Simulated assay, not measured.
Amino acid sequence: MGQTALLALVSEAEPLVGHWRHRFDSSASAGVPAHVTVLFPFLDIDRVTAAVVDELATLIGARSPFAVRFEECRRFPDVLYLAPAPDQPFRALTEEMAERWPEAPPYEGQFTEVVPHLTVAHGRPPEVFDEVEADLTGRLPLTATISSVSLLVSDGSRWRQHREFPLLG
């Protein structure tokens, strides 16, 4: 409860991955739309003051909207995801947010490298990943425009959008 996330929502992906995400990614059933994570976890909501909101608006607003293509599925050991190209704009956003708020390292510092991705299925056996990948591969590429970063907050069971910060560049 009170946990937050900074996410680049990818509404264009919902028709392609929504069905699979609702079946095989618990974050979807908790209200999290298709997205590429910028920073998770971020600050607890009680630490997201007006000053933090203003700083997020300034930092994110300084960046320009960008186009991205999802051309292929890739895997981590327990995740099937769509890989964004280019991924550098996501990496730059993550690095800037993590540098500004070092008390909120990406994924609690679990990984030496943060790889931008749009999760489609999580924690499933390889044969499920194979089925989902086979379906998606013939329907790619998907193009999208990233024009904002959203702050989502959890009430302990559901995630809701709290604020949206446009990329104004």
Rank of each mutant, 00 (worst) to 15 (best):
L9H: 05
I60V: 14
P141M: 00
H35L: 09
R160G: 12
L9Y: 03
P77I: 04
L7E: 02
M1L: 14
L152D: 07
P89W: 07
C73P: 10
E71H: 14
T49P: 15
Q88V: 09
P33G: 14
A121M: 07
R160H: 11
T49H: 14
P41M: 09
A28C: 06
E12Y: 08
T137D: 02
D25A: 05
S27D: 02
S26P: 03
L168A: 11
R91L: 07
V114Q: 11
S26F: 04
R63E: 09
A13E: 03
I146L: 06
E55S: 00
Q3W: 15
I146V: 13
D44V: 12
D44K: 15
V36C: 01
R63N: 11
H22V: 02
H122T: 04
E103K: 11
R158V: 14
S157H: 13
F66V: 05
G2H: 14
L136D: 01
I60D: 09
P15Y: 01
S150A: 15
S150W: 07
I45G: 10
E131F: 01
R23C: 01
P41I: 15
L39I: 12
D135K: 06
V153F: 08
L93W: 06
W101S: 13
L39C: 08
L56G: 01
D25E: 10
E55N: 03
T58L: 10
S26L: 13
F111I: 02
F165R: 03
W159N: 01
G123E: 01
T119N: 01
D54S: 06
D78Y: 08
R163G: 01
L152Q: 03
G138W: 08
P166L: 12
A67Y: 00
W101V: 04
D78N: 10
D135N: 12
L93F: 06
G169I: 11
R75G: 01
E127T: 02
V36S: 03
L142P: 05
S29E: 11
P126L: 13
S157T: 15
D54V: 04
W101M: 10
S157Y: 12
A85Q: 04
A5F: 12
R23Q: 15
A57N: 03
D135M: 05
G18D: 01
G169S: 11
R21A: 02
T94G: 00
R75F: 09
I146C: 04
L167G: 03
L82R: 02
G109L: 05
F90K: 02
